[in-house]
Amino acid sequence: MNISQSWWKILGAILVIYSTVYGFLSSVPALPILHESIRNLYFHVPMWFAMIVLFTISVFHSIKFLNNGSEDSDLKAVQSVNAGIVFGILGIVTGAIWARFTWGQAWSFDVKQNFAAIALLLYFAYLILRNAIDEEQKRAKISAIYNIFAFPMMVVLLFVLPRIGDSLHPGNGGNPGFNAYDLDSRMRMVFYPACAGWIIIGYWIYTLLARVTKLEKKKTL
């Protein structure tokens, strides 16, 4: 392993290990209902951040594909969506587990849950759209355009619409969560490394998927 090329993987691993250990051991503010489950901030929330970064990478490669038409950019766009969906599903399932014990129901049709599910469905639709078109250049072009439109929709679904309706989610509508009063400095010391670490691990997974797919497409191996 070449350290000058792989240092960021080690950094990601260290950050994730740190945030997992201190996620369980560090002290947290005592809040009603949440109790210790507030520690899910270090596990559930970074999943969504990793997903958003991976989808951003996908949009970047889709734009690149529309500029240069290279097969490689198309492949990278798909694989980052694949990696992003894994994190999205993890985010929604860890959210449902948490909701079961704080809201009383795994799926209470809360606006935040519903819109997060719709955002994921947008990206499932992207993969289905790709499978529906046989011609390679056409498939790449149409799905690149779809991807560019799906991204701002996803951002609106996750960050704008849940704030308009009443959501139980922490940070929405006066519920304790991601704001200056509750996220104290002790939690920031774990939360930010957790986000950075999981984003790096997510990027690593995407590069692995892209490399394997690239090799699979090569006919002369």
């Binding site: 997992t20 860890t94 948490w98 704080t102």
Partner: peptide, 17 residues
């Protein structure tokens, strides 16, 4: 999962990941 101040909820989520 509901007991012990809900710490097992976090453990379940970490395990799932």
């Amino acid at each position: 999962l509901a007991g012990s101040e809900k710490i097992y909820v976090v453990a379940a989520c970490a395990l799932l990941i």
